[in-house]
Simulated assay, not measured.
Amino acid sequence: MGGSSALQFAVTVLTAGVVGVPLAVLLTPPDPYTQLFALGILLAMTLPAAYYLSYGGGYESLRVRVQQ
């Protein structure tokens, strides 16, 4: 991702949502409260991870390790 940090952050959060929400629906019981709880946990884990990857140098670190 060669864009700005804000764009990297947004793409990371959107990608995690697109992948995580269907997984939460498949892996949790068909109870709306449980699925909302799973979505809250997903957001609580995704936002700090996306921040680290975008603003903390995580993507650059991964890029260096992959190119070796």
Rank of each mutant, 00 (worst) to 15 (best):
G3K: 14
G2Y: 13
F9D: 01
V21E: 07
A24C: 06
V13I: 10
G40H: 01
T28M: 05
A38Q: 08
V18Q: 10
T46C: 04
Y52L: 12
V66R: 13
Q35Y: 13
Q67S: 14
E60V: 06
Q67V: 09
Q8H: 09
P48H: 04
A24I: 02
L23R: 13
V21N: 07
V21A: 09
Y33L: 15
A38G: 08
D31K: 06
Q35S: 14
V21D: 05
Y51I: 05
L62N: 03
A6P: 01
L62Q: 07
Q68N: 12
P48T: 03
G17Y: 11
V21F: 12
A44V: 08
P22Q: 06
S61W: 11
P48S: 05
L26H: 12
A16L: 11
L14C: 07
Q68I: 04
S5H: 12
V25I: 14
M1W: 12
G2S: 13
S4G: 15
V19F: 09
G58F: 01
L42Y: 03
Y55W: 04
L26R: 15
Q68C: 01
S4W: 05
G56D: 02
Y59E: 02
G57H: 04
A50F: 08
P30E: 05
A10N: 03
V11Y: 12
G57Q: 04
A10W: 03
L62G: 10
Q67N: 12
G3S: 15
S54L: 05
R65N: 09
A49S: 12
P30D: 04
Y55I: 01
P48C: 01
Y33E: 15
G40Y: 05
S54K: 03
A38D: 09
P22A: 06
A44G: 12
E60K: 01
A16N: 12
Y59G: 00
G20A: 03
T15A: 14
L7V: 14
Q35M: 13
A6N: 07
S61Y: 01
S5M: 14
S54P: 01
V64L: 00
T12M: 09
L39P: 10
D31G: 05
R65P: 00
A10M: 09
L27P: 09
V18M: 11
V11M: 13
V64H: 02
R63K: 10
A10E: 03
Y51A: 07
Y55K: 06
Y59N: 07
P22W: 06
A50H: 05
T34C: 13
L53H: 05
D31E: 06
A16R: 08
S4R: 10
V11F: 11
A16W: 04
G17F: 12
F37M: 13
S5P: 00
M45V: 13
F9H: 03
M1G: 14
T15F: 13
G3A: 15
G3W: 14
A10P: 00
G17I: 04
A16T: 08
A24S: 11
M1T: 11
T46K: 03
Y55Q: 03
L42K: 08
L42W: 06
M45L: 15
T28S: 12
G57N: 02
V13M: 04
F37P: 11
L26I: 13
R65H: 06
L62P: 00
S4K: 08
V19I: 11
F9C: 03
Q68F: 00
L26S: 10
